[in-house]
Design a protein around this nucleic acid. Structure first.
Lengths: 392, 392
DNA sequence: CAGATATAGTTTGGTTTCGCAACTAAACTG
DNA sequence: CAGTTTAGTTGCGAAACCAAACTATATCTG
């Protein structure tokens, strides 16, 4: 006799019913409208492969839900004019970009277009910061009339554990092990999503930079430290407790300088903005309160020591990418940070270093700087908030 | 006027129709039968959340397709007896495990149970090897009567580029840039799937070792070299051209010995079986034609130099796992290889090394040896061949 | 300017699939 | 042998798709 009823788990493997079909197709159509707007129903049918009748029903539903609106009619050589569809820009999200020195709060529509914006210095005390954030979010929310606010997306220079709702490992933001999400959600009455800055840049790249078809890419953010965001098989890799992507804290030389994380010779000790400043000072140059951007300017003005320091940093950046190339073999590596302003200095060094290290038989990744860097993180917050409605 | 018809890509975004619902549920039911057999229709309904009527229809379809058969009836305290269902073991696959020194060809059913088996030395010439393989596969295929052979699954110590059908990067198997799949497919008339050995072990772990619920794990295979297989978000990560997972060729010490890949100080130079033998010889021990397994025996017999060499290897194994822990933060690291026979020596050293390097806020992964190591790769081939019928 | 042609979008009918509830089948109990 | 319990089947309605016919609205042509 076999009786295992008591062992049977109650909950269900996501089984499919007829509504699932509609949900899948609804998301496909919504994303097609997002990426190809303005677009007519007939074109949606052609691109998606769904019947025109089905498209009409789904579009009707999307308009009922206020995601989509009809625009002007188009004009064709013959025949009835198409009605163009586009995303409803009355649905907005509030994006927050927390950096070690300053916080930006901004309002955006679903297309990643930003309107109003507030900037404040980053408070040292997380409680003060959270109160200031709530006030700022409220001001922006009040100012946007009766537009529907979809939620608040926050990026920060650290890892966030979604199962525990806690900030973990943010060495450049000394806030400790704090819960940011719930206080802000309660204080504003809005849904709040948090994400690491590098991961947010991955989302931004996939959503807004026409990289939907690139299913394996890595974003490397370079500033005080180095962070990475990994897209594998088209999905963000967060790992257990959200800590995936800390390639910056892999030791590349066991005899290197001490790192803030406690180890010795981590990649970011050799290849971050701070490292370049260290190389510059070690070469005998004089400087007080020099920033990384200042260093780039000095290089442009012909300072040979600045050029050398930058080249050393670029060299180590490229070398460290071996980690990423060997371990993940991505199609692209997207570089984010102030260094992209001087890509003519960094690009060639990084590229040759990466090429020299590709394993026999391997295909080297494209290494590209991200454009309009200032907005990459903020655009990521839009994707962060909207992805549950748009993505599968 | 906007007319973008000519720009519209033909590609159909995986759009859903009513058959998709059945397909999803069919796979769910088939997998439930696989993992919980013997199981009745009524229990399937309870576990899956689908209606009993729906289960009956799906099971009928699966029996028509010869995936599932009815077994004996069960017995309950009251009521009608349930009819148990299980996988049809008349559907078999042929698994091939190619290693640098020997090749194993074996017959297995869908449960990963192996029956007949052939072993041969690995020919140096790939053409010879392919011919020998075809002959061996034919012998086994002929011997299995009228059972339905689902396909041939091959694992090998190298990376395989599925889009080009070519073996790339197999430094321990000097066959060059060869096409293995098509000759064998033509020579046997069977479908052939290839996969890297570490990736095959990932599939085996997920399919047969009850690790379905672990969606982030890394397999580390340790033998002549070190290979890794990555499971992220429940999916194998192959990267561009199948090269993902070569953490073994990340330099951990820029001043280390030269590696077969051309770089210096790669992880596998410090932590492979070969490395342990090198440490042993460097310590002044005398040995001719010593294998790694011999070294383990000597350690067990009290050879202090052998113990030391093993500890050094274990130390570097643990250190190198920092790459994996920092970059991917997996829930588990599964270690495969001869070293698992002496896990009492390796386990503690590796674990303490990994623990010492976990970033603040991070959760350390479980490091576990895989059981019945000899079969891990072969069981992976079963999953490899069957996954397109079973998995989403 | 009427009719032909072309294109956009809607309506109607047919199919597949699921859920739900009523049903039949087969066991045990008293 | 009637009552209860559990397994599995049958029939019907709802939701979603596709396919094809239909309506609406353009331009072109003789």
């Amino acid at each position: 006799m076999v009786d295992n009823r008591h062992v049977l788990h109650r909950r269900q493997t996501g089984v499919a019913s007829s509504e699932v079909v509609r949900d899948i197709n609804r998301r496909i159509v919504l994303n097609l409208i997002r990426t190809r707007q303005p677009i007519s129903r007939a074109d949606l049918a052609r691109v998606s492969g769904l019947q025109r009748s089905t498209i009409s029903l789904i579009v009707e539903q999307l308009m009922d839900e206020r995601w989509v609106i009809e625009g002007p009619t188009g004009r064709l050589p013959r025949g009835r004019r198409p009605t163009f569809l586009r995303l409803n820009d009355e649905r907005v999200i509030i994006g927050v970009d927390i950096r070690p020195t300053q916080i930006t709060v901004a309002l955006a529509d679903a297309n990643g277009k930003f309107s109003s914006q507030e900037v404040m210095p980053t408070p040292a005390d997380p409680k003060v910061a959270i109160d200031a954030l709530i006030a700022s979010i409220r001001r922006i929310a009040d100012a946007c009339g009766r537009k529907k606010i979809e939620g608040v997306g926050i990026t920060l220079p650290g890892r966030f554990n979604p199962s525990a709702d806690r900030l973990v490992f943010a060495p450049n933001l000394k806030w400790g092990d704090v819960d940011i999400r719930n206080p802000i959600a309660k204080g504003t009455g809005l849904e709040v999503e948090l994400e690491n800055a590098a991961n947010a840049c991955v989302l931004a790249a996939v959503w807004f930079d026409r990289m939907e078809e690139c299913r394996n890419l890595v974003v490397v953010t370079v500033s005080e430290g180095i962070g990475t965001g990994i897209l594998a098989n088209g999905q963000l890799v967060r790992g257990l407790s959200g800590m995936a992507g800390e390639f910056g804290h892999v030791p590349v030389d066991p005899k290197g300088p001490l790192c803030g994380c406690g180890s010795r010779g981590c990649w970011e000790v050799f290849a971050s903005n701070r490292a370049a400043l260290r190389y510059y000072l070690e070469s005998g140059a004089r400087a007080v309160d020099l920033t990384f951007v200042d260093l780039l300017s000095r290089a442009d003005r012909g300072d040979a020591r600045a050029v050398k320091a930058i080249e050393t940093m670029a060299h180590y950046l490229g070398r460290g990418m071996r980690l990423i190339v060997a371990g993940l073999s991505p199609e692209r590596i997207v570089v984010v940070g102030d260094l992209t302003r001087s890509w003519h200095r960094f690009g060639p060094v990084i590229e040759s270093e990466v090429l020299a290290q590709v394993l026999p038989g391997g295909v080297p990744p494209l290494v590209v700087p991200t454009h309009e860097d200032g907005m990459a993180r903020l655009r990521g917050t839009v994707a962060l908030v909207l992805q549950k409605h748009f993505s599968a």
